[in-house]
Amino acid sequence: MKRIAKFILFTILGWKLDGFFPKDIKKYVVIAAPHTSWVDFPIAILARISSGVMIHFIGKASLFNGPFGFFFRALGGTPVDRTKNNNLVDAIVAIFNSKEEFKLGLSPEGTRKKVTTWKTGFYYIAKGANVPIVMATLDFENKTIKISKPFFTTENKESDFLFLRAFYANVKGKNPDLS
């Protein structure tokens, strides 16, 4: 499967990889931005499979209904009910704490629409589970998947967010007007 994913991603689709998902760290949060199109998902899944690192994801519950539910679960997804006001951060921190190895991919924007500020859940998950954040981006303009080294949060949220956002400067998503 890994070879097929590499062939599709790099040979057929022409993407390049800049960096690697850490294999020596057992737990971390991956944040991927900008998230501007449904096309981000299959590219990210191909990148994950070709890397050989299992990165789980969460998605709105409706994606897991009907015939595609099995497919999304098989890819490592877990449905989330976004209509309820539940404490998702604490629930995900508990998952991190209960597993020996767990990596979770999230979009800090929380949507494919244009946003001016990121959601903060990924940050508090990383802090609560005491795990680093790995930044990843799909730069459609340059057809490059860029992956950062692990970043450990500090006690200065504003400074951390400036550092995290800087990684995504000048990156063009599939729909650049939404980046």
Rank of each mutant, 00 (worst) to 15 (best):
I133M: 02
S159C: 09
V53S: 08
D177E: 15
D177A: 10
F68S: 11
D24I: 02
N170A: 10
A126C: 04
I49H: 07
S51A: 08
R82P: 01
R82L: 06
F161L: 15
I12F: 12
R48K: 12
I92N: 09
F68D: 03
T117P: 05
F151T: 08
I43P: 02
D177K: 09
L164Y: 10
L46E: 05
A91R: 12
S98Y: 09
A44L: 12
F161S: 06
F64A: 08
L164V: 11
D24Q: 06
I43N: 07
P67M: 09
K143E: 01
T144W: 05
I145M: 07
W38T: 13
F57M: 02
T117Q: 15
K146H: 07
W118H: 11
L88F: 14
G128M: 02
L46P: 07
V89R: 05
V134C: 04
F71C: 08
I147A: 07
K113T: 13
S159P: 00
F140Y: 15
S179D: 14
D90I: 11
Y28F: 13
F122W: 03
A94T: 10
M135F: 12
T83L: 10
F161V: 13
K113D: 15
P42A: 06
F122P: 02
F72L: 10
L104E: 06
V89K: 03
G76W: 03
K146A: 00
F72Y: 10
L104F: 00
V134Q: 00
R165I: 09
G110A: 08
A91D: 15
M135D: 06
K60N: 13
S62R: 10
S179W: 07
I31A: 07
S179G: 12
K23S: 15
R48T: 15
R73D: 01
T144E: 12
T137D: 05
F10T: 09
A33Q: 03
Y123S: 06
Y123V: 05
L162A: 15
N85E: 11
D24H: 06
A74F: 14
A47L: 13
F21T: 00
K60R: 12
K103H: 11
E158L: 10
D18H: 11
N170S: 12
V115S: 01
D24E: 12
S148L: 05
T116N: 14
T116V: 13
P79F: 07
L106P: 00
P67A: 12
M54C: 10
M54I: 11
K16A: 04
S107K: 01
I125K: 01
L46W: 00
K103E: 03
H35E: 01
F167Q: 02
T78W: 10
V29N: 01
K26G: 04
Y28A: 08
D160R: 05
P34M: 00
T111V: 08
K172V: 00
N175M: 10
F167W: 06
T117R: 15
G173D: 02
Y123C: 09
T78Q: 14
M135L: 15
K2N: 11
P108G: 07
N175W: 09
D160H: 05
A169I: 06
A91L: 15
P79D: 04
K143S: 04
A166N: 14
F41A: 13
G76K: 03
A5Q: 05
T144I: 11
T11G: 09
R82K: 08
A94V: 02
